[in-house]
Simulated scan of single mutants.
Amino acid sequence: MDPVVLQTTVDGLLDTFAGYVTNVIGFVVGFLATYLIGRFVLVPLVRRVLQRRGFDRAVITLADSVVAAVVVVLAVSIGFMSAGFPRFLTAAATLGGAVALAVGFAAQDLVGNFVAGVFIIKDKPFDVGDWIEWNDNAGRVEDIDLRVSRVRTFDNERVTVPNGELANNAVTNPVAYDTLRQQFVFGIGYDDDIDRATDAILEEAEAIDGILDDPAPSVRVTELGDSAVGLTSRFWIDDPDRADFVRTRSAYVQAVKERFDAEGIDMPYVHRQLTGEVEVLEDVADRAVTADGGEGE
């Protein structure tokens, strides 16, 4: 081979190799510089901002993961640009948009529950340990995840509820405040003394430890039923845990029932009166036979 041609080939290979080395060095430098700045500056900065604004730990952890992923993608993009491939960013953005669109259509419910979980953790309509009611369901919250919340029912069953259902529907939190008002309707007979029954209901409420004196219990006539006069008792309980609420309510109703029995106050139940005629089947059959015999003659 001609020495000149050989020298030219060697020089070309060296130039190509030097170009590759330059590209690799550019990629490594761009990637490391971007990654280190993002990892040790951007991520801690986002974390401190969220902590100062009082966000929950789950939200901060989620933000750390998202920012870390963004930093890696950005570092790879800057690395390729530093290596002399400026079109990589455009291609990556196009591919990323297509992937995001496909994933969004395939997992829109999952993404919706995920976003709802973020808002539940941020807004705190309820906390772990709270007793909540939603869509004719009730239970105590055991865990709040980013996708689902786990609720233990009062029959000791676990219900896994998508966060979207809790975020998009009305949720009642009876233990959100320090006190809870309850009411119960006591029915008395029309011939009974309303004032006497009212005094008995209030005295029994004041004797129950779980019922507060302030606000004081109250009784109002609210119903004139078919067989009874309805007296609605409204009372407040402190630190409204469901177990205490059920026990207090049961003790109160039982005490009023026993007081009414002792004082001769009637608690009537609904009466139904049937009117009309009742015929015995034998009589009907006899008349039918008689009628047939008469026709035969």
Score class of each variant (00 low, 15 high):
68 A>M: 11
129 G>Q: 03
275 T>G: 15
62 L>D: 01
226 D>N: 14
70 V>Q: 09
34 T>L: 12
96 G>I: 02
127 D>G: 13
255 A>V: 03
76 V>G: 06
97 G>L: 11
137 N>Q: 15
287 R>I: 01
285 A>K: 00
129 G>P: 04
249 R>P: 11
19 G>L: 12
261 D>K: 12
250 S>C: 03
85 F>Q: 15
98 A>H: 07
102 A>C: 10
191 D>S: 11
63 A>I: 07
245 F>M: 09
162 P>Y: 00
162 P>H: 08
209 D>L: 05
272 R>G: 13
89 L>K: 02
227 S>K: 14
263 E>M: 10
94 T>H: 08
246 V>S: 07
118 V>Q: 08
49 V>G: 11
224 L>H: 10
138 A>C: 07
286 D>T: 14
22 T>R: 15
258 E>L: 14
43 V>F: 08
17 F>H: 05
150 R>I: 06
161 V>G: 12
133 E>M: 12
217 P>W: 01
139 G>T: 02
25 I>A: 13
158 R>M: 06
91 A>I: 13
132 I>E: 03
236 W>V: 14
254 Q>H: 10
15 D>Y: 04
75 A>C: 07
2 D>C: 06
74 L>Y: 04
234 R>I: 07
166 L>W: 00
13 L>F: 14
113 N>R: 12
255 A>E: 03
134 W>F: 15
294 G>P: 00
74 L>I: 07
56 D>I: 05
190 Y>L: 00
189 G>L: 06
112 G>A: 09
246 V>W: 09
283 D>M: 06
11 D>R: 14
266 D>Q: 15
245 F>L: 09
214 D>T: 05
6 L>E: 05
265 I>T: 10
99 V>H: 05
104 G>M: 13
1 M>H: 12
219 V>T: 03
125 P>K: 12
90 T>I: 10
218 S>A: 11
280 V>S: 14
123 D>E: 00
131 W>C: 04
234 R>H: 00
220 R>L: 09
266 D>T: 15
152 R>I: 09
54 G>H: 07
69 A>V: 06
199 D>K: 13
87 R>V: 13
30 G>V: 05
201 I>R: 12
117 G>E: 09
244 D>V: 07
104 G>I: 06
175 V>M: 06
114 F>H: 14
64 D>V: 13
85 F>C: 11
30 G>W: 11
180 L>K: 02
106 A>R: 02
199 D>H: 13
84 G>P: 01
207 A>R: 13
69 A>L: 13
38 G>I: 02
126 F>S: 03
269 Y>E: 15
263 E>V: 01
44 P>E: 05
43 V>W: 00
56 D>W: 04
220 R>C: 04
25 I>L: 13
28 V>P: 03
182 Q>W: 09
